[in-house]
């Protein structure tokens, strides 16, 4: 059983078909990258996988750990271990990071039938995870994403990823808004979080991120489908020759 198997996926937004028969299989411990020009449905795929309202799956199946998740609520998917690092993380005024983290950690533990984390262990986890992504204490005291810079918001996503340790992490344009130093820190954090039991789906525009996080597979998406798959060299070819150049080879 694979971690994720997407078969012939079709997704509509407001009756317009964006994803048009996409296939993708991700196994435990793998890192996949999806690249492609703007407006080809990369972010739509990410949103559809986590059940964003308004993203209608008209055809196909998404098997996660062997179960079809297409009918599941967003929070059910999340509790089962699917995590999306948002391209544009939302601000939640007044809700402190600490309170937020404790709430989401305990929701997951409750789902697994384990007791809430003790305050001591929780704070330890916060400290460790914060260190990993370079989140300082000042940021932890603020409200979720409120007044964060673009880079801080992205770091905060990976901070949560480190806290929650999901099986499947989808990173939607994580590199946008990150300066080169932050990108390095965040990528190192992700590399540290890699195990044989979890997988990453990286959606990105540029291959620069893939210099830091080495993918096992690279897919090129165009007009709602994966049109070419390969290894890391595909990303390099893409960077050198552009989308048209890579596609022309076919």
């Amino acid at each position: 059983m694979k971690l994720l198997e997407i078969k012939d996926l079709h997704v509509n937004i407001e009756d317009k078909e964006i994803i048009k028969g996409l296939n993708l299989t991700i196994d435990y411990g793998e890192v996949h990258a999806i690249m492609g020009p703007n407006g080809t449905g990369k972010s739509t795929l990410a949103s559809a996988l986590v059940g964003k309202p308004g993203y209608e799956i008209t055809k196909g199946t998404v098997l996660y750990k062997g179960k079809d998740i297409t009918g599941m609520e967003p929070e059910e998917r999340a509790l089962e271990g699917i995590f999306l690092a948002f391209q544009y993380p939302v601000e939640i005024p007044g809700v402190s990071m600490i309170n937020f983290m404790k709430t989401i950690i305990d929701a997951r533990r409750k789902h697994k039938g384990i007791d809430p984390l003790s305050p001591v262990d929780f704070l330890k986890l916060v400290k460790e995870s914060g260190k990993l992504v370079g989140i300082n204490d000042k940021m932890k005291g603020r409200a979720v994403n409120e007044g964060f810079s673009g880079g801080e918001k992205k770091k905060n996503e990976i901070f949560q990823l480190a806290m929650l340790k999901p099986e499947l992490a989808i990173l939607d344009e994580l590199d946008s808004g990150l300066d080169i130093d932050s990108l390095r820190i965040v990528s190192e954090a992700i590399n540290n979080l890699r195990t044989t039991n979890n997988s990453f789906l990286i959606i990105t525009h540029y291959q620069r991120m893939l210099d830091y996080i080495k993918p096992d597979y690279v897919h090129i998406m165009n007009e709602g489908k994966i049109v070419k798959s390969g290894d890391k060299s595909l990303a390099i070819a893409l960077e050198e020759k552009g989308y048209d150049g890579v596609m022309a080879k076919n």
Binding site: A78, V95, H111
Partner: peptide
């Protein structure tokens, strides 16, 4: 956003209102 982090509607509303 909160649901994606595993909170149900009630928990999410409660958290936002408290904030």
């Amino acid at each position: 956003y909160l649901k994606q982090r595993g909170l149900n509607e009630e928990e999410a509303v409660s958290l936002i209102v408290n904030g």
